[in-house]
Design a protein around this nucleic acid. Structure first.
Lengths: 248, 248
DNA sequence: CGCGCGTTTGACATGACTCAAATGCTGTGG
DNA sequence: CCACAGCATTTGAGTCATGTCAAACGCGCG
């Protein structure tokens, strides 16, 4: 039973947190914007960051088509971004874990392109964009880091496009699970055992599938010995064969 | 017959071109990197640009997984970028028209993430990236423009993701045609009458559909009075109803 | 403890794919 | 200039994966 299993605690529980730490002692430092900045520049960056951002499940961070004021970096928890398709339905364009940037696609239009919502109790750092730009004029490395983050998201979106246009349901779910695994690894967590902070419905939506299909796939993957799911906790049992499923 | 119709000439014929013009007299200036730069900075940028890039149909600009050396801006013609899926199939991740940037997703990894191929005789400007970065340290506006271009592509990729994961074949093709129309409008060309520089096969691939489906859709859209196709030339006859097809 | 939502399971419908073959177009060499 | 080869496009028939609808189940929260 999921409730008996000691599920690895992925993220800080914000209610137990101390005051948010400055960049130089943040565990996400190596994934984040300050990487490679000297002490002097880092201090200047530190001063413009708002670390007091805290959100509960279903709280909205920003709405699509509202003015772009800040970039956000997740510190703990999970967010999703959604875009309303014209027919009223919604598409989840991304899930965001600690160290990941939300809002990069708003820089061009100067309006947020999606609505960002917390999937659980979460915290983040807000980077006011005009101040970031001002700072960037003096700190080239900062601009480079932003461009690199944007480039990284661009590359991973291209992969998602391929997934959605070329692959069947098996491959989509397998790829999704392995992508989570890889992202957790970057953050020093287990690659094989983690908690799915999003409901099945959201996974289905993100992968362009029906909830029922996701449910059936979880059941079949488990039966085939690829994974072990119980509610929100999941263990990737057979990584090589899961990898094999990512094709077609 | 397509051959009798005077199809609007979208792009310069490179064989008739004069020497490539400098940025300040380039017709793509307002869409491109120099936008907002002062004369002095523009001159410095001008000096690092290689304008002698010319490619024939099927020529490769770069291959995936080779070192990232330069960003490219299309000056005339069309390019496509493809990624090889692990099972050997290819996915076309984008088409690129004059004024559009190729290679932005390579900045993070420092390797090209896709293979870029000319769809017809085409020319482009090459921007050596290390020199661009050096220049960027002195010209903040240049960095901002790059970030903005990257952000723009990010936003349009998110839209494509939605298209691929949520929409049926009708909506995919309608959206694709209207997206071409909008991009041609930005460049001062007709929004309703243009040439499809890519073969059906490539449209199908890009939209995650079979060639046969595209062919049937063109036939049906024409029968329904939405469009008028003859070979590579197409007229969008009923924009409002085409727009309506973009849903579902 | 009970309600409600998230999840699972089953039966059936259908849109798009695959395979197959005809037709049309383009570029090339005689 | 014409004929031909090869590729692109169109059209048809049948299959299958995934969606839709419906209903049962069970976990978690109040």
């Amino acid at each position: 039973m999921a409730t008996n299993n000691p599920v690895i605690q992925l993220f800080d529980n914000p209610t137990q947190r101390k005051d948010p730490v400055a960049c130089d002692s943040c565990s996400l430092y190596s994934l984040c914007l300050p990487l490679g900045l000297n002490n002097h520049d880092l201090q200047k960056l530190d001063q413009i960051i708002d670390r007091e951002q805290r959100y509960q499940r279903n709280d909205r961070l920003f709405r699509a088509d509202t003015p772009f004021t800040a970039l956000f970096v997740v510190r703990s928890g999970t967010f999703k971004t959604t875009v309303a398709a014209s027919n009223g339905r919604e598409q989840i364009t991304g899930f965001y874990f600690p160290g990941e940037f939300i809002g990069l696609d708003a820089i061009y239009t100067e309006n947020y392109q999606s609505t960002a919502t917390a999937l659980e109790t979460s915290t983040l750092c807000a980077l006011p964009f005009t101040r970031l730009q001002t700072l960037g004029a003096d700190i080239p490395q900062l601009q480079i880091n932003m461009l690199r983050r944007s480039s990284k998201e661009l590359a991973s979106d291209k992969n998602l496009m391929i997934l959605l246009s070329k692959n069947n349901a098996d491959a989509r779910l397998a790829t999704f699970l392995l992508s989570l695994s890889a992202r957790f690894q970057e953050r020093g967590f287990s690659t094989t055992r983690f908690r799915l902070s999003m409901p099945r419905k959201d996974i289905a939506n993100h992968l362009g599938l029906a909830v029922e299909t996701i449910s059936r796939l979880f059941a079949r993957f488990q039966q085939q010995g690829l994974i072990d799911v119980a509610g929100k906790s999941i263990t990737l049992v057979d990584l090589p064969n899961l990898q094999a499923r990512c094709e077609h």
